[in-house]
């Protein structure tokens, strides 16, 4: 592939030493399961591949306690172990990895440029796998008590709540699974959900229902979190009756859904009203040479497995695109 290509204008310019720009075949933004899988596929195809993540490896999966629905691990595997293995596999095939914060995606003729807080990187194709972040509750006290009783990561902070009384907010898989995990430490875990039924998988629901340490409060939202040096109480509001109640708790774990990390491509790539990137079934966005994979996409099933699958599909089509666009006859 390298032999066939003609030297393009940018490369010629750089050879003169006038500018330096870091050039790649593919840039993958995000090193969660989607990004790591895309990096694995592209690096195995001998494409010059760069993977950029602002934190490190693993994304949300890295802070998940136990993953039981990723095939091949009959006993389940912790999210941190699984994503470390994924990262090792990527390293073996030689993808480059850097820790920088992406700020912008630019289109320069047939090239795609990713601007970070430190540099600029240019590639023939870009795969956006920047994932999603926990949605905040947006109630008073949430930000003030972050790290002092408000948490978004049970595996990070659970152990601080030995013998205590905590709330978990949400009704999806993450909320219910992490509520069960937190009973390892806490004396009492109260799940607060704004609806009347949980959305989590049935297995997880059963574990929550049969766990003597877990109580569930339905139809309710957190209106306020307060305390002195750490969280002491919350005000819950029943969304049906409007009734409010005060509860004394030591901690609040928030699993109230996700926000796609797509602000940095807004105006460049087409998003839906919630900020999810729109793609076709080949993970192509509306921009040629730009793909999206994993939780940042509009999709229904957000799992490690489907993120990995998206990553593979995006990598495959990015490679085909590069071949036809840059090396085709």
């Amino acid at each position: 592939m390298q032999l066939k290509r003609a030297i393009n204008f940018f490369e010629l310019w750089e050879m003169t030493g006038v500018v330096t720009m870091n050039n790649y075949d593919v840039i993958i933004v995000g090193a969660g399961p989607a990004g790591l899988t895309a990096a694995l596929f592209n690096a195995r195809s001998k494409l010059k591949t760069l993977c950029i993540d602002e934190i490190g490896n693993g994304g949300q999966a890295a802070i998940t306690d136990l993953i039981e629905n990723y095939p091949g691990f009959p006993e389940g595997i912790t999210g941190s172990k699984l994503t470390i293995k994924m990262a090792e596999q990527v390293e073996r095939f030689g993808a480059e990895k850097i820790t920088e914060k992406v700020q912008k995606l630019k289109l320069e003729e047939e090239y795609r440029v990713v601007v970070t807080n430190q540099s600029k990187y240019r590639a023939k194709a870009v795969i956006i796998a920047s994932g999603a972040s926990p949605r905040m509750l947006g109630c008073p006290g949430e930000i003030d008590f972050r790290g002092r009783g408000v948490s978004y990561c049970a595996t990070c902070d659970g152990a601080f709540y030995e013998g205590s009384n905590i709330l978990v907010i949400g009704g999806g898989n993450a909320a219910v699974e992490e509520a069960v995990y937190l009973t390892k430490f806490a004396d009492k875990v109260t799940l607060v959900h704004r609806r009347q039924e949980l959305r989590a998988a049935k297995v997880a629901q059963e574990r929550a229902f049969t766990n003597p340490k877990i109580d569930i409060i339905w139809d309710s939202v957190v209106e306020k979190i307060s305390g002195n040096s750490s969280v002491e109480k919350v005000i819950l509001k029943n969304v049906r009756s409007g009734e409010r109640r005060e509860m004394f708790v030591d901690g609040v774990f928030v699993y109230a859904g996700l926000e796609p990390n797509s602000a940095w491509v807004k105006g460049v790539v087409r998003l839906d009203e919630k900020g999810n990137i729109l793609t076709d079934e080949n993970m192509c966005t509306n921009i040629k040479g730009v793909y999206a994979a994993g939780d940042v996409r509009r999709k229904l099933l957000r799992q490690v497995l489907t993120a990995a699958s998206d990553g593979a599909i995006a990598a495959f089509h990015a490679e085909r695109y590069i071949e036809s666009q840059f090396y085709g006859s």
Partner: peptide, 14 residues
């Protein structure tokens, strides 16, 4: 940091 805090472990070498 903590041994089961993956973000902590990612940050430590940096």
């Amino acid at each position: 940091w903590g041994p089961s805090c993956q973000p902590c472990l990612e940050l430590l070498p940096q």
